[in-house]
């Protein structure tokens, strides 16, 4: 089947999509956006997190056909051209990236958190990231990065 949807502001058409295929597969294999990672295909790891009509979801659990006519924003759509989003900058500065497999999903999920909750508490950060697994960093640097990005955002808003 054919699926038409918008990804990072650009209209996309994917052809020959199998009816049981996931949005994650379509993004990675048909639209050429391999940023969203496939690490479990069962909703457990969060590395495939994307925005679907503004809500973070696991792309591996959305059927491709369910994305028809909808807006998807992936990790590739966070930066403004060459300028990284503040959450991306903070991840780099804090050393929150090691192998990087979990990073795209964490960036989208953390981006959503600081959009919704201007100055998140530590328990709020932990709760928001509870569905994103990282096997490398031990999470401390990731928490640092989210705190830093949130603080900068709050500062800029003052």
């Amino acid at each position: 089947m054919r699926v038409n949807f918008t990804v990072n502001g650009v209209e996309q058409t994917a052809d020959d999509v199998w009816e049981g295929e996931s949005l994650l597969y379509v993004l990675r294999e048909r639209v050429g956006l391999p940023g969203s990672k496939n690490a479990c295909e069962q909703g457990e790891c969060g590395s495939c997190t994307v925005y679907l009509d503004g809500t973070p979801v696991c792309a591996c659990l959305v059927a491709a056909g369910q994305a028809e006519g909808r807006e998807v924003r992936t990790v590739e759509g966070l930066a403004d051209g060459e300028r990284l989003d503040p959450i991306q900058e903070a991840f780099v500065e804090c050393g929150a990236v090691q192998c990087g497999f979990c990073t795209p999903g964490l960036l989208v999920q953390a981006h959503d958190l600081i959009e919704r909750v201007p100055e998140p508490s530590d328990p709020e950060i932990r709760e928001a990231l509870a569905g994103n697994l990282c096997r490398c960093t031990g999470y401390e640097k990731i928490l640092d990065a989210v705190r830093l990005a949130a603080a900068r955002k709050a500062e800029a808003g003052r």
């Binding site: 696991c58 059927a63 369910q66």
Partner: peptide, 14 residues
């Protein structure tokens, strides 16, 4: 039927 897909898609993916 598929709503959120959080059960259905796991079965399909595997």
């Amino acid at each position: 039927p598929i709503a959120g897909g959080t059960d259905v898609m796991v079965e399909l993916n595997f």
